[in-house]
Design a binder for these strands. Sequence first.
DNA 1: GTGCCTCGAGTTCC
DNA 2: CTCGAGGCAC
Length: 751
Amino acid sequence: MSGGIAVETLSEAEARTELARLSKEIARANTAYHGEDTPEISDADYDALKARNAAIEAAFPHLKRSDSPSEQVGASPSEAFSKVTHEQRMLSLGNAFDAGEVAEFDARIRRYLGLGPEAPLTYTSEPKIDGLSLSLRYENGRLIQAATRGDGQVGENVTANARTIDDIPERISGAPALLEVRGEVYMSHADFAALNVRQTERGAKTFANPRNAAAGSLRQLDATITQARPLRFFAYAWGALSEPLAETQMGAIDRLGALGFVTNDMTRLCDGPKEMLAHYETIEQARATLGYDIDGVVYKVNDLGLQARLGYRSTTPRWAVAHKFPAELAWTRLEAIDIQVGRTGALSPVARLAPVTVGGVVVSNATLHNEDYIAGRDNKGMEIRDGKDIRVGDWVQVYRAGDVIPKIADVDLTKRPEGAAPYEFPTVCPECGSDATREEGDAIRRCTGGLICPAQAVEKLKHFVSRAAFDIEGLGAKQVEMFHADDILPVREPADIFTLRARDAENVSKLAKRDGWGVTSAANLFQAIEDKREIEMSRLLFALGIRHVGEVAAQDLAQHYQSWEALTSALDTARPAALARRAADEAADAERRAAAEDGRRARVSEARARAFAARNVPDESAAIWDDLIAADGIGPVMALSLSDAFANPDERGAIDRLVAELRSILPPETRADDSPVAGKTVVFTGSLEKMTRAEAKARAESLGAKVSGSVSAKTDLLVAGPGAGSKAVKAAELGIETIDEDGWLSLIGDA
DNA sequence: GTGCCTCGAGTTCC
DNA sequence: CTCGAGGCAC
């Protein structure tokens, strides 16, 4: 439907007619896609329509219509809203599930700040709204942008839709010149019920719960639909600011209220865990009468100065926690257990359930984790579910962990059908028939088929094109499966992606002629692939899907070696040492076992040394291996996994074929060192008076410094408080710069 | 050797 | 989002 005549040969009149037709079709597809009806066309067809529209507009710019689909808020279902990078990350919260964990939260904060158990410490306590987080950016009192949370770093621009929400003011006065207000968009129970009545009357799909209704409404391409939906907004936090809002959390919330935002009237100040738990009870009891969904209570350290000192862990602030309500439970029947095979060959059991509503969502699948989990044991062999195993036909109790992932909490043995047998976990891969084995001490059984296994091959390819890896537009999971199964234009390994265009050109059955594809969509895909012949080294490394080498490890490795050649030659040289290391590990294990058997003390290090020496590793190889495992974040397990992948002829062949297709592998960007301590190795010694040790370390690391515990030749700076002993002496001997706590604070500009 | 903390991998539903 | 496991500090 999208193909039509080649754009270059269109007459002006034809182009005009075609643009009108496309505009209409796309508008109809938009309405259909976004909830008013069931989708009528596939995403690929939709993208093809948009692509053709864009191509014609490019060829005849003067014919572009005022209602051109390319001008509308959304571009396509997959890239409907433009991306917005949050100036301040939008983080999630850590969780607490009982009184003990709340007390632990308080204790952790006191420890970190160096406060005794009796020192006064105030928290705010407020209901946790079950909606969607939104960040509103105000400049000089005007709303200029609204963005969803997304992955925390990058969200979606939903400004036009946010402007239709009554609780969100267009203008505010008396605010800082720059103010990002954060809060939750939600729908009340009453509005949700009324909306579903209207949906039913119109024969449209109803929403499963208020949260989904709010999410669906906010993500409308057509802001007039959002306007018709009764969305509300509670403000409870902030992002980037040109000046502080207040000195306390409570003060800031009051300030937001004064600026015209709706804040939650159940927010209270509490003097410690006891009062926090009491307020939790109050909120839990009010839950049914609030008129909107909440899923817990949030506690935050009230003093903003202390919040700043506490700072953040990788994904959560240290100064706040969400105390979640107990998860909703539901009983249903387990109809079957299926096995999925992941990219590393992991066999993952999935429960197929008789559909049941849990927490407002119909659940029909649940994860069963692994073999032991089904049998009723955890990874340490301890009983879970009182040791009850799970059998097909059982009545099982389902909950959604973190309100998302369905899991099985319990089994009703009284309802177990007669003759139900314990589940027998397969020992061969259900996809390829290879042996599926379990390493000692490992919880997961893995298919040994490697790339012979079609499931592993496809999953590996999906990983290769995924967002954090090659991120090829128009080549998602679905397309990868299609190409992998294709006999005419097969993609069986990463290099095949890059030869796709050339092979297509030589083929009679062109991609552009296929169902769901058109000239432009095929051309767009080929272009997207061409664009990725230039790729960052860390992405390439991550994309290979080597076990234990994730996004972060790939970045660490790129940082360490700087170039692809340096990395590969290091791995090649280090191979003998890697093999010797494995032999030593195995010898150590064997010795431990043998010793346990005949009840003597194990002589592990000797066995280890003997096995290593027997390998006669060249000095150069050993040196490179040592350098590899000394790299930041890289240990022997990762190093061995890497070494294996690059030494395996099949895998290495695929890697080399891929690299040959690439134009350039970009070295990592050297981190901008805008702080005076970036890249320096710092040691703290003696007592610190204005901050605790943990705090000093976290602060230094956030400025790009590496904090070490002992002084060595690698140390750049020693921060010595009163009572500094041997470390200060050693630093003096080595001629290392030494400063005191105040010197450190003024150095980093925190005086 | 032990105990954090972070990373990797797998998963559900829309 | 959660669990298991690797890395690293103590």
